[in-house]
């Protein structure tokens, strides 16, 4: 590759979101669909062994016992009713079943009456909140909206510096305080600034916290109230940033963060690894929380809007 001052001379190939999403979950697809193909090929007729094998496949992608049970239960019922007799039809049914779960959503993002729209990013430690904040800032900028970042993670060492680098990369401004400062105070300043500047969007990067720490969870509630003192219906969106490698604990995270912070959607990060992120299906099943974005790398444009069809198709290899 020839490097110049302005980057590579090679034209980066333009690929659709759909393609990239598919690439991102390709590894997931390989393993999962291989196994499903195996099941499908082996079973000309659909018998109990085929279901048991499918159960193993779904469990291995972190869907969890109860969601797997529910999916298989529905699948059994429908395959009996529709007299499904081969594996390919079973796969179509499974696809429809997973799609139905992922698309059932209770909460639509609030209509923002007047800017700024306030978005909180919350989650446990190390899921990628700061990185996602930076990428999201760039994503919205690309859509022509003005963005302000708020560095409300005042706890973790160098979190503010990390977000500052992202702010610079994305070309947006950032409101910050010193490390150890009060997150609600910096949030207040940021909301006021966004309000005064008529910024379209305020992205708030919060400190990582385990959902079991009640004191820290209460802090999120306080931050909500702080934002509401200036903008009554803020935050308009609360995104739970979830690591795709997360196992069954993800469900508990989603529950407790929804309780204290009113989560409205999920960002599934690190989907470029071998992890499957199947836990989002379990979360959608129980809490009806939609996935809004997926993170697929460390670069600024490695953030994609979530497409449930692409996700499931890639998962099952039916694309």
């Amino acid at each position: 590759m020839i490097q110049t001052l302005f980057g590579s001379l090679d034209q980066p190939e333009k690929r659709s979101v759909f393609d990239r999403m598919r690439d991102a979950v390709a590894r997931t697809r390989e393993s999962l669909s291989d196994k499903i193909e195996g099941v499908v090929a082996l079973t000309r007729e659909v018998d109990e062994a085929a279901f048991e094998e499918l159960e193993g496949v779904l469990l291995a992608s972190d869907l969890g016992m109860s969601t797997t049970g529910a999916v298989l239960g529905a699948l059994r019922e429908r395959s009996r009713r529709q007299a499904i007799c081969n594996g390919a039809e079973l796969k179509t049914l499974l696809r429809a079943e997973l799609l139905a779960i992922l698309q059932a959503r209770d909460s639509l993002p609030k209509r923002v009456i007047k800017p700024p729209e306030v978005i909180f990013l919350v989650g446990v430690n190390g899921t990628g909140k700061t990185t996602t904040s930076g990428k999201l800032a760039a994503w919205y900028r690309k859509q022509g909206r003005t963005v302000l970042l708020c560095a409300a993670d005042t706890f973790r060492a160098a979190a503010i510096e990390q977000l500052a680098v992202w702010a610079q990369r994305a070309g947006v401004e950032m409101i910050k305080t010193r490390q150890g400062g009060d997150p609600s105070a910096v949030l207040f300043d940021a909301v006021q600034a966004a309000n005064a500047r008529r910024t379209d969007l305020l992205l708030v990067d919060t400190a990582g916290r385990l959902h079991t720490k009640t004191g820290l969870m209460a802090e999120l509630d306080k931050m909500r109230r702080t934002a509401q003192r200036i903008i009554w219906d803020a935050p308009h969106e609360v995104l739970l940033v979830l690591d795709a490698t997360t196992g069954q604990n993800g469900l508990q995270q989603a529950r407790l963060f929804t309780e204290s912070a009113g989560v409205t959607g999920i960002v599934l990060t690190k989907l470029d690894g071998t992890a499957k992120g199947g836990i989002v299906v379990a979360i959608a099943q129980e809490l009806k929380l939609p996935v809004r974005f997926v993170g697929v790398g460390e670069k600024m444009d490695d953030l994609l809007a979530f497409e449930s069809e692409a996700f499931v198709d890639s998962l099952l290899g039916t694309a």
Partner: peptide, 11 residues
Amino acid sequence: DAMTGQDAVRS
């Protein structure tokens, strides 16, 4: 991470 799911084996 203690919260890792099935992927722990692969990584």
